[in-house]
Structure formats: structure tokens, C-alpha cells
Computed example of a mutant assay.
Amino acid sequence: MTEPLLQVRELKTHFPVRGGLLGRVRGTVKAVDGVGFEVRRGETLGLVGESGCGKSTLGRTLLRLVEPTAGSIRFEGRELTGLSQRELRPLRRRMQLVFQDPYASLNPRMTVRDILGEPFAIHGLERGREREAKVAELLDLMGLPRDALGRYPSEFSGGQRQRIGIARAIALRPDLVVADEPISALDVSIQAQIVNLLVDLQRELGLTYIFIAHDLKIVEYVSTRVAVMYLGRIVELADAADLYRKPRHPYTQALLSAVPVPDPERKRTRIILQGDVPSPLAPPPGCPFHPRCPYAMERCRRETPPLYALGNGHTAACFLVEDEARKVTPAGPDAGAPQSVGG
């Protein structure tokens, strides 16, 4: 079996909160708190969860745009967390980000020619006519006209701007692309076009995606596997088909119950969660989901559940699946032993 393209272990990203005249640390926001997973080359890992769960922070931490507090990020077996910015530069071209907002992510003072030529200039690749040819090729891939080269971002629609942002991300043919809610700022009529463009580019260029979104139907369409985040942790991870067919974690079940069903004859029981997501500045003890969970037990208030292995790569951080995990794990001295919280 080939080595995963990306391996993450016990990754944490904490932000100190300062206050008072002396700026002393008054608390810590645990935006990402012990996350672990692997991404295989050519697949799409969907990352879902409510706003504020840490999805975007995790995506930026993986690319070292936000510095991790602890943990391991390995890209093709090479540890990234200890590298200096200078040592990271050669790897930057192989890991890119598609931003959420196409209006804010493009420099309004640069033409499309300059925006798409900038990655080549930064990394000292292609000059003159060769760079011009590469930029024109990117426009063709995006379905944009060649006369767009001399125009500014303000002259394009939201969907066209996002195509320019995607073109910039894939300009150097990266191996890994983190797409941070790439369609949430777009009109519904344009979202499907951008999603299909990303799928086509993956097939044509062999890209690997981490696709961050809150639209569960879109995530189901594009993803090979799906990770569900809650309050800085992954609470369930599985193949997309398995997770949507039989979610194990109560939080995942609640999220999926809110997805509209296109068949009027098919009824789905909606699970309404009580209360709001707790603050990452003061997470609850025990299972972070227990204040809103309809199945919470006394144990949930005291202990933090690990990610239990349920077979076929399906894991869930919930004590309700502990017995199922024991049946899956072969008998032996470690029978029923869960995976670490970091995955």
C-alpha cells in the first residue's frame, strides 16, 4: 500500500486570548484540538461541521499559513512542522489554497495576467512568452476568454473571479489543494459549475483535495471520504457513502437530518439540537458534544470519548459505539481498544 500524501497526527492550533493593561493571557481558544487523519493521493477528503468548529483554521494550519501549537503534519513522509519558511518555499508550489471569497482574495489593482503570472514569478519559473503561454493555458482550462488577460477582477462576476482564484491555485500543478468553502460566496446557479470544474480538474490533473464546506449535499457529491468536525475535533470519519448511509455519531446524524430530500414522498425525521455550540475558549468537560446530545450519559460529562474503529476505515468518537467497536476488533489483549483522539 502506497504512503499517504498527507498524514496528520494530534494536530493542535491554540490562540491565546489576552486582556488587561499588561496584555496577560486570560485564556486559550482551542480552534483545532488533537486532530488526526490521512489523505491518499488523488482522493477528496470532505471536511464538514458548523461555523466555528475549526474547519478553516485546520485547512490553513495544514499549509502552515497558521502555525500549529503541537502535533505532526507529514507531506509525502516529510515533517512540515519544524521547517523554516525558507525550507517550506519549495513545498509551497505543491500545496495550494482556494479561498472562500473571490472578491477579497484577488488584488483589485492587478490584471488577470499579473495575478496568474505571480506564482511563476515567485518561484522563478517560466519567463516571457513561456509564462504568457502558461497563463493563457490556465484561462482555457477555466473556460475564460483570452481577452480576460488585460482585465481587472472588478470586471468579472463572482463565478468568474472564483475561476481566476482556482486558476491561480493550480498554476504550478500542485499535488494538494485545500478548497476552503470555495462556493459559499457564490450564487446557487453558479455553485454547480464551480463544483463540476473542480471535479474535472481533479480528473485531468490528478489533484488531491481537502474540500471544506457546510453544504452536505455538495460534500457528498465531491468527496471520497468525509470528516465531521465539532469544536476543534474530528468526531466521525468514514467513506462518504458509508457515512451518509449509516452515520454513527449523534452530531453527524443531526447534521444529515437537516439535508433536504428531493423526494416529496420520502419523509426524514429532523433532529433538532438544543442550545448553541460551546465556546472553544471554554469547552465543556468530557465529550464536547454532550451539552447538546440527546443521548448524553453521565459518563459523557466526565470522559472524552476516543475515536473508536468501526471497520472499513469508519471511526466515531462516541461511547454509544463502544460495543460495536469491540465486535469489530479481533480478540486479543487489546481487543476493543480505540484509536487515539487524533485518529
Rank of each mutant, 00 (worst) to 15 (best):
Q193P: 05
S72R: 14
G117K: 12
V235T: 07
C287K: 03
N107G: 06
D33C: 14
F120T: 07
L11A: 15
Q160R: 10
P306T: 11
L47A: 11
P330M: 15
A316R: 05
Y308L: 09
A258D: 05
V341M: 05
L255M: 03
P291Q: 00
T208P: 04
A240H: 08
F211S: 01
G165Q: 06
L144Y: 06
P262N: 02
A296T: 04
R173N: 07
H14T: 10
V259T: 13
A104D: 08
R161P: 01
V328A: 07
D334N: 03
G77P: 08
P306M: 05
L186C: 14
L197P: 14
L149Y: 01
P264M: 09
G36L: 07
Y308G: 06
Q100K: 01
P260T: 00
F15K: 13
L65S: 13
G159H: 10
Q100F: 00
P247I: 02
E79F: 12
A192N: 13
V98I: 15
V259I: 14
E3K: 14
E132S: 07
P102I: 15
L139S: 11
I170S: 05
D175S: 14
E87M: 12
L11D: 14
K55G: 13
H314E: 02
L139M: 06
G311T: 00
P288M: 00
N312M: 08
E324T: 01
V17L: 10
R146Q: 12
A121S: 15
E130L: 15
D147L: 15
L198K: 03
G128V: 11
I218G: 00
A227F: 05
E181Y: 10
K246Y: 07
A309W: 02
S257L: 10
F75P: 13
A337F: 03
V39E: 02
D101N: 15
Q100A: 06
L125Q: 13
L144R: 09
V135T: 13
I122R: 06
L256W: 14
A179Y: 14
A213V: 02
P333N: 05
H14L: 12
E236L: 14
G128D: 09
R168K: 14
G36M: 09
L205P: 11
P330D: 15
M110N: 07
E236R: 09
T269R: 11
G159L: 11
R161H: 09
T269S: 00
E303S: 02
V32Q: 02
D200T: 11
L83R: 09
M297K: 11
S340T: 06
V177T: 02
T329Q: 01
L80W: 10
E3V: 07
K55R: 08
L106C: 05
P283Q: 00
Y308C: 10
F120V: 11
R113V: 14
K55H: 08
D334K: 00
R40H: 04
P182L: 11
R92S: 05
E118W: 14
I271G: 00
F99G: 01
G54M: 07
Y209C: 02
R326D: 04
G82N: 04
Q96Y: 09
P247T: 06
G49H: 03
E50N: 04
Q162W: 01
R168L: 09
Y251F: 12
G52E: 01
S105V: 06
V261C: 13
L6N: 06
G71R: 14
Y230S: 08
P153D: 02
E155T: 12
A167P: 07
G34V: 07
F319D: 08
D200F: 03
